[in-house]
Amino acid sequence: MGLKYRLIIAILVVAGLALTVVRYFQHHAIAVLDPKGPVAAQERNLIVFTLLLVLIVVIPVYLMTVGIAWRYRAGNKKARYSPELDGNRAAEAAWWLIPTAIISVLAVVAWRSSHTLDPFRPLKSTNKQMTIQVVAMDWKWLFIYPEQNIASVNYVNFPVNTPIDFAITSDAPMNSFWIPQLGGQIYAMAGMETHLHLEASQIGNYYGSSANISGRGFASMDFTAAASSSAAFRSWVDGAHLSARPLDMAAYNSLARPSQNNPVTLYSSAEADLYGNVLARFMVPGMGDYVR
């Protein structure tokens, strides 16, 4: 086969692969880079900014690696050979100081963004904040709405453009609560409470899951985070109230038994301070972990 044909085949293969990749990403969003809320958008910007900043060092490293390796290959007798050269103060100072300068910039960014994007910090908004309590269970997510007095499993609905305070705990091993298109994750731990403040700026259904292994059924711990218009949210709440399935202590205890692939379930009411009780049970001697 001649060089020309080989070249044509190579070009076709590369073009075919490139086309496949492009087609793939046309149909599949990259969640973290496709934010649907202010928190995720700021986190995406932070990732892109950091990447660009680091490339200031990385691109020269790549170019120098190729350039130096090629020029000073043993076969190239024209290149200068200095078998005693073992350092250069100015050059070494440069590669101590230039990265230090870049990291200094990044340090300021890290300090500021850690505070502005602290998951415990309420979001600024003209709309009133809404609280949703989250309990990670073996192996499903329970969402309790203290203001609406309803509860749901593996499905969380909330109005768009409304800051949500997710108050999170666990009645099981450690999990991590993550809705990539709305913002970063935080751990769910038994006997402890964490907070994650998120907001959706677009109506839609977003994928959520547990990012931390919690046992056999952990892979099925995904849920839908539905950002709805306020009218749709109200009618969803009304529908839940009509379901006539209260989440009393007996219902909770049967839900708490390990199970996988739980269907979306709505509860018409929740036991008073159920969430507080789940938190407290791990502080009471003799309660807490189920022993199987």
Binding site: E43, L46, V54, S114, L117, G184
Partner: peptide, 19 residues
């Protein structure tokens, strides 16, 4: 290393951790 520096920024890590 680039990925490591990205994850060193805490809010960026919230989106990358355990993924």
């Amino acid at each position: 290393g680039v990925a490591g520096v990205l994850m060193a920024v805490p809010p960026a890590d919230f989106q990358l951790h355990n993924s």
